[in-house]
Amino acid sequence: MADDRSLGSSSVGRLVSAAGVYGIAALFLAVGALLQATGIIRGFLTIQNMLNIVDAAALVGIVAVGMAFVTYSGHFADMSVPTTMGFTGYVCIELLRYGFIPAVIVALAIGLLIGLMNGFVVGKLKANPIIWTLAVNYVTMGVIRLIWVNKQIYPDMRGSGQKAVELFDNIYRLRFFNLIGLPVVMLLVLVVAGQFVMTKTSFGVKLKLTGSSLRAAKFSGISVERVITTAFVLTALTATIAGLAVTSLSRVGAWYNGAGYDFKAVTAIVIGGMTLAGGRGSILGVLGGSLIIGLLNNVLTLLGVGTFSQDMIRGAIFIVVVGINAKSLRSLGRDDA
């Protein structure tokens, strides 16, 4: 048993455990196929549906890849993701009248600021990450309601230039070879970059130390505050990217644009084999976890399961995975999960 622990830190071991996630994804695919073969659901095994799954998984995946850095740092999750997504979407639409590029840049800058703030408060002031980011989520929601008085806004309603509106509407609908959507490409780029940053850079090494033992990292002369802040910034930036995607795809700035992405992302992260205790797991695993979330949503929707029941099922899966995780850590003699 102690062996797969040491294995877990080798790159081979990481691939093996990531492969496990893809095995589960394949299983879901098989279940979907079976349900279709037995006539319980229809239209699962079509190209269009597969694209839907991948597109949905891409949006969750983009958020999850960023948030995985927070989880890996030992700070569980960033619950401010939903309104970060919603808020930056509003801002971008509002600013389209100054052009597409400036609007996107300002949106990203706002994401950056939210990340910096979260990182400072959690890293430096040692606030509880869940409580703090939940609070930020509510406050941001309040800000949205204050500015836009509960209204949804549309890209073409703000007297923005035709070109900027079209660009904003269409960019995320871009499909390479008429097949692979821009969000999917973005996700793949983020996964490769994220995996590299986590395993090959000095920041990644420090992040692992911080996540494994915050005190030991600090007592090794690592600026843990800086490391934690960077993790929150990465999360906020990927949330902004996903927020703009959701806004562009739905062609509307709405407060609910990011709803549910916090929990979907955390679930993808833990299914992907990352422990909430920090310091263990990989971005490749998180990609697999996002695929599973995408597949699950799709199958459940085809089965006619309602949104609330879907949430419940996801919640149950989350609890089971975290439970298994904690148990396997305990049997390895480290119940510091």
């Binding site: 040491s6 830190s9 494994s212 033992s213 030991a216 600090k218 310091g279």
Partner: peptide
């Protein structure tokens, strides 16, 4: 144990 080593790492 707490400040010196990250016990879960190699």
């Amino acid at each position: 144990k707490h400040e010196g080593l990250a016990l879960r790492l190699t």
